[in-house]
């Protein structure tokens, strides 16, 4: 017997109907000028995130974990600075990449140079700080481990 397709919750149906009505009311205006361009952006940005950006950083993370092998503790010391640096690049790529440099300088009178340098510097600080922290904590752990190890003389 084929399972019958269910309607589902009445409340949920009513709520979604209201939501779609409002979305359609605003959507008509949103799509009024360049409907194809706007629809492409809304669907495209979701697909770009779900099917490109997310798999890319997930794959990079998986590669990192695999590369770390048994040193699992070290993973976070690479993951955190890489994620933070990548986040800054994701948000500020038009300025870091210099693609709006001409307009930025002529409109605001501010220099558009230095965004890439400052991003690289921040990235260096993040990785450097992380490495320092790793070495310090590692040294503490090593010393503690040496102290706690029962001496061979006793």
């Amino acid at each position: 017997m084929r399972p019958r397709f269910q309607l589902g919750s009445t409340f949920q149906l009513l709520l979604l109907a209201c939501s779609f009505a409002l979305a359609a009311y605003a959507g008509v205006q949103l799509l009024a000028r360049d409907w194809f361009g706007v629809a492409l952006w809304i669907v495209g940005v979701a697909l770009l995130h779900d099917l490109v950006l997310l798999p890319l950083y997930a794959a990079a993370d998986r590669a990192l974990v695999r590369a770390a092998g048994p040193r699992r503790r070290a993973v976070m010391y690479v993951r955190v600075p890489a994620a933070l640096s990548g986040l800054l690049l994701l948000v500020w790529f038009p300025l870091i990449g210099g693609e709006v440099a001409g307009r930025y300088t002529s409109a605001t009178g501010l220099s558009a140079d230095g965004f890439a340098t400052r991003w690289l510097l921040l990235t260096a600080v993040l990785f450097g700080g992380s490495a320092l922290l790793y070495v310090l904590l590692h040294a503490v752990r090593l010393r503690r481990a040496t102290k706690e190890r029962p001496s061979a003389d006793h």
Binding site: S19, F20, A21, L22, A23, Y25, A26, G27, Q29, L30, R33, D34, G37, V38, L40, W41, I42, W92, P94, L95, E99, V100, R103, Y104, A107
Partner: peptide
């Protein structure tokens, strides 16, 4: 960032887009 690559006037896109998003968000 003055990167006007989106398809239309920012004011209209961001305003109507906000209402479409908000409808689904609620």
């Amino acid at each position: 960032q003055l990167d006007y690559i989106f398809p239309g006037s920012f004011y209209a896109l961001h305003f109507y887009g906000a209402w479409v998003f908000f409808a689904a968000f609620v």
